[in-house]
Design a binder for these strands. Structure first.
Lengths: 205, 205
DNA sequence: TAGATTGTTAATCGATTAACAATC
DNA sequence: TAGATTGTTAATCGATTAACAATC
């Protein structure tokens, strides 16, 4: 793989391709084409080919792409050919929901730590997770060398939590709090904001 | 307002601006500038001005934007100067979490209907919502003229549910199922997929 | 071989940024 | 008035699409 810089927007599409490929595989398909894959995800065939070709030649002229092979390659590229331990901070409805979430494991992630600051919640068990005191968070995450965390606390506490996570060595943060958090350059943040998506759509109503 | 077509990507940024403005207002600020707002949301000042100017002249040279005024205008544009009733389909962890979600009301939405197909869940009460049988869904939504729905069922059932929602007159769907659903042109769909966001970030680890 | 589909280059399209006159 | 910041135009940048030779 050449080390030219791949645009972020292309990386963001790879998980969508992977999701579609998983679906095709579940339906028993062996090969697919840029056309078919594009139809699944609502993207042009040309763009699918261009995106994939950034990383190598994974298809065959006349035949298309072997679904299993392409999936494996995309997983390697995204570094999800392994399982990442994830810390969840905030055990309200969202945090609890995520700790149950079946979809993570098959897609490369496993919730292994849960934190909250509410004494009534600390020590309780959700699935196989025991909720720990947030005051232990930095030391526990550091010790386990966890790199991925999810923030599911109220907006007012999100920045403070983010700073602790950074101190603990976290490099990827999925933030459910409806506030933009400031972190060092080498830490990635993505946002989940269902209300923002709804607001986007009402424009067209 | 001229009726030129506004790019979808601009519409998608308006909720972010609104979120930042709400935050500024909560902190007691009265006015802001394209520079300040841009810093909040991580977008250039030029782009903020260009986006906003698509809809009118809401700022003052030398002074900037009145936060309250701009918020009101953006809410009008996004049609969230009212409260939209929302139907939630699927009362698993995600659906339950959403029915509790405090963030909706102040941002233009209210969960008013909940549906599931599990006899053990039907009839139970979550907050002030009674879970109804999914077989009643089309008629209930039609009767109440609800336009916005959230799909929180397993991927295998999502397409079927989407078709019923369309039949019931729903025009905006927020889909938590990890599958792309096919709906008529006049129905909007947005996706929430936390694992996809995590996968995106691991690339950079 | 004939048909299909890739990988890639060039052309097009659209979005972002820079610059600045207008004006509060 | 002097300073600040908007709204807008033109320039730049980057992403998408179209086209096609290569080849399975």
């Amino acid at each position: 793989m050449t080390t030219k810089k791949i645009p972020d927007i292309i990386i963001g599409r790879l998980p969508l391709y992977l999701r579609a490929l998983a679906r095709m595989e579940a339906e028993g398909a062996i090969v697919t084409s840029s056309k078919a894959l594009g139809d699944w995800v609502g993207i042009s065939a040309a763009q699918i080919r261009k995106d994939i070709s950034q990383f190598g030649e994974f298809g065959k002229q006349g035949t298309g792409y072997n679904i299993k092979f392409l999936s494996e390659k995309l997983k390697e590229i995204l570094k999800i050919d392994r399982v990442w331990d994830v810390a969840i901070v905030g055990m309200g409805d969202i945090g609890r929901g995520l700790s149950h979430y079946e979809g993570f494991l098959e897609r490369g992630f496993r919730a292994t730590l849960a934190f909250d600051n509410n004494p009534e919640v600390i020590g309780s068990t959700i699935r196989n997770l025991t909720v720990q005191d947030i005051s232990e968070m930095v030391s526990t995450i550091s010790k386990k060398e966890i790199k991925v965390a999810i923030i599911a606390v109220p907006a007012d506490n999100a920045q403070e939590v983010a700073e602790k996570l950074v101190k603990a060595g976290i490099k990827s943060i999925l933030n459910y709090a409806t506030i933009i958090i400031n972190v060092p350059e080498d830490v990635r943040v993505q946002y989940i904001d269902p209300a923002a998506h709804l607001q986007w759509m009402t424009y067209y109503l």
